[in-house]
Amino acid sequence: MSVPFLDLKAVHHELRDELDLAWKSVVQHGHFLGGPEVERFEDEFAAYCETSKCVGVGNGTDALELILLAIGVGPGDEVVVPANTFAATAEAVRAVGARPRFADVLPDTLLLDPDSAAAAINWRTAALIGVHLFGQLADVSRLEALAARHGLAFIEDAAQAHGARLDGRRAGSAGHAAAFSFYPGKNLGALGDGGAVVTDDPALADRVRQLANHGRSARDRNCHEVSGRNSRLDTLQAAVLLAKLSRLDRDNDRRRSVMARYRAWLPDWCTPVAVAPGAAPVHHLAVVRTADRERVAETLTAAQIGWGVHYPVPCHLQPAFEEFGERLPVAERAAGEILSLPMSPSLSDGEVARVCEVLRGART
């Protein structure tokens, strides 16, 4: 039995009727940008995230960059980010002219270490980005308090955490604003690129919306009050996301069931990343640690089992950011051990059992 890393065909098969209807509706009314589905999705996703405002944008990277621009981060500023994250987090900081300041991660969850983040703060620091990696929230209470103590903006990078909670708080509801990605492989994924900013600050939401729409005035579309950009969630993607949003909690529950089976059936030497006390993760990825990753990966490939590594090179060691780098031992060690196993709401018990069977034979 071959097991794909992520089978988007199977995920979308269950939604075929809803997706066909979304396509037909948008084609029929013809409002491909700024159509009624965009506003409806923004309202429903804001409510889902337990915030008051949502602005749909072109992608998750744009969402981060637009938040930084909207709060005034720019040249001369530093932004604290975890080393264990996708490059987009640091790219957004560089795109506004600021400097990323990398911090280490916790050894059990591999999420931003609040103590390391505190050590990275100096007089240039303007913001702190907490990345909710693998579907689990960073320690938002400690990070939020740390940011408040130093007068910093606290931003959530929630690209991998649609619907996750920590101590009852939903991803997207903790910081000044949160960035979401709707890349097709996300828990809530579009049929192309898409993203959103959620916040409880109406002025910040208005600023993001203006910047994302060429800096236009809300009163006169022919007046460009600031230099903005083009970053809009299109109507078709909004319609697709609306169809999927109603099933997101159910799909996240399926992911939790898949992860529970992994934890029960994996060999002892294959250790899943820990779940923090009070966390309700949504398992965007099923990440384990092994001291013999190369051999294990070769065994999985030979058995036609999909796998990935998120991420093999920490951001502070990437050529694009090496000028900002320093030694961050926890992230560096984890980068050589982490392995992502197949994860999807459509993954069957038999497929999980097959993955675990192959893993048990990888070191015999």
Rank of each mutant, 00 (worst) to 15 (best):
S2L: 12
V3S: 06
V3G: 11
P4W: 13
F5S: 05
F5C: 04
L8V: 05
H13S: 11
R16W: 01
L21P: 02
V26W: 06
V27W: 02
P36L: 06
V38L: 09
F41G: 10
E44R: 12
Y48V: 09
G56A: 07
G58R: 02
G60I: 02
D62A: 11
A70Q: 08
G72I: 14
E78L: 08
N84K: 08
A87S: 15
A87M: 13
V93M: 04
V105P: 05
L111F: 14
L111Y: 10
D113K: 08
P114T: 05
T125E: 15
D139E: 15
V140A: 09
V140W: 09
E144D: 15
A145L: 04
L146Q: 01
A147K: 03
F154W: 05
E156I: 12
E156L: 15
D157I: 02
G168C: 08
R169A: 11
F180I: 13
F180Y: 11
F182Q: 00
G185A: 13
N187G: 08
L188Y: 01
G192R: 07
A196M: 07
A196L: 10
D201W: 06
D201N: 11
A203F: 15
L204R: 15
H214M: 10
R216C: 15
S217V: 02
V226E: 03
R232L: 12
A238P: 06
L241H: 03
D249H: 03
N252H: 00
A260K: 01
R263N: 04
R263M: 11
D268L: 07
A274V: 09
A276R: 13
A276L: 05
P281N: 11
P281D: 03
P281G: 03
P281A: 04
H283R: 10
H284G: 07
A291W: 10
E294K: 14
R295Q: 15
V296D: 09
A303T: 02
H310F: 04
Y311L: 07
V313S: 02
H316E: 01
L317S: 08
A320S: 15
A335I: 10
P345C: 13
S346W: 04
L347S: 08
D349I: 03
D349W: 00
V358A: 10
R360T: 07
G361N: 10
G361H: 13
A362L: 13
T364D: 12
T364H: 10
